[in-house]
Amino acid sequence: MSKPTVLITGASTGIGATYADRFARRGHALVLVARDVAKLEALAAKLRAEAGVAVDVLPADLTDPADVAKVEARLADDAAIGVLINNAGASLPGAFTQQSGADVARLVALNISAVTVLANAAARRFAAEGQGAIVNIGSVVGLAPEFAMAVYGGSKAYVLHFSQALQAELGPKGVYVQAVLPAATRTEIWKKSGRDADQIPGLMEVDDLVDAALVGFDRREPVTIPPLPDHAAFEAFDNARKAMLPGFGNAKPGARYRANEPA
């Protein structure tokens, strides 16, 4: 059987381009999505020559609803596509009060809305076919409100919740959903957000990040956190969360919220 085609967003540089390289070398055809046509074409030519795979270029600005719809249609209609890498994303410089409403809206459109719409298009077909994989690139910042990256961190917290909920829904139907949570990684996101990557401690190289994420992919991990030394720490966190679930079904408020009762 032929290997499924992999559609990768944000594929022109960084994490997306590295995923493209790795899947091409595994023998997968690719559909590369990003805004920068010149970089996409250069990467596509390189991968065709080096890996001998078919590579299509699909230019799109995923903050533009019309372009999102174009990629959505490709995912819905192209039966060869069996893996979606939802990688495109952005950050914003400065504190929340220094960010404009328009900039915040664009970040939400890219980091949340596009991720959701494209996953929906893939999930509908994958579930009907009983196979496929969706990889959503989140961030450890989604677990760390203390970092005070309100919109970016909130968008990545959404990606984690969204991915876990999709895995619960789609896993029994044969569809694998993985959330990948990088920490600081050497990509263009730092320059675009006004940061000097060389001044950031503990910066992971993108090759190491993607190779680790693919180990998790091959193991079918629902959540992969490449920089975390002991995955049991996340499992303990997740189990603590799950332990709260029975308490959410109480018809009365907790005693600490009721008058004249001890906390």
Rank of each mutant, 00 (worst) to 15 (best):
A29C: 02
L181T: 07
A240M: 09
E72Y: 15
K46N: 11
L62C: 08
A165D: 01
A45R: 11
A49R: 11
V175D: 00
M244H: 10
N136E: 07
D198A: 03
A88I: 04
T116G: 09
H28V: 06
S113M: 11
T116A: 13
N250F: 12
L107P: 05
A144H: 15
R25T: 10
A109S: 13
A243I: 02
A90V: 06
E205T: 07
K156T: 07
V68L: 05
G138S: 11
T63R: 10
R220H: 04
V151A: 07
L181D: 04
I85M: 07
D103K: 14
P65K: 12
A49Q: 12
D21K: 13
M1R: 15
L30Q: 01
V140T: 15
M149A: 12
A165N: 05
G247H: 13
K70V: 10
G101A: 09
G142Y: 02
P253H: 12
L143V: 03
A88Y: 01
V68W: 02
K192I: 08
T187W: 04
E169C: 01
A183V: 08
G216F: 01
A197I: 04
P226K: 05
D67V: 10
N239C: 10
K46R: 15
V104Y: 08
K173M: 06
G101C: 05
E41H: 09
K242W: 09
Q99I: 07
T18L: 15
A34G: 04
R241A: 15
T224M: 12
L181M: 13
A38V: 13
P201W: 00
G14D: 08
R256F: 10
F147E: 13
P246H: 11
S163M: 02
D218C: 01
R106D: 15
V53F: 07
G130Q: 00
Y158G: 11
W190E: 00
T116H: 11
L58S: 06
G14N: 10
G10M: 06
V117N: 03
N86R: 07
A79P: 04
N239D: 14
F162W: 06
T63V: 14
V210S: 04
K192S: 10
A236E: 13
Q164V: 13
Y176S: 10
T5Y: 03
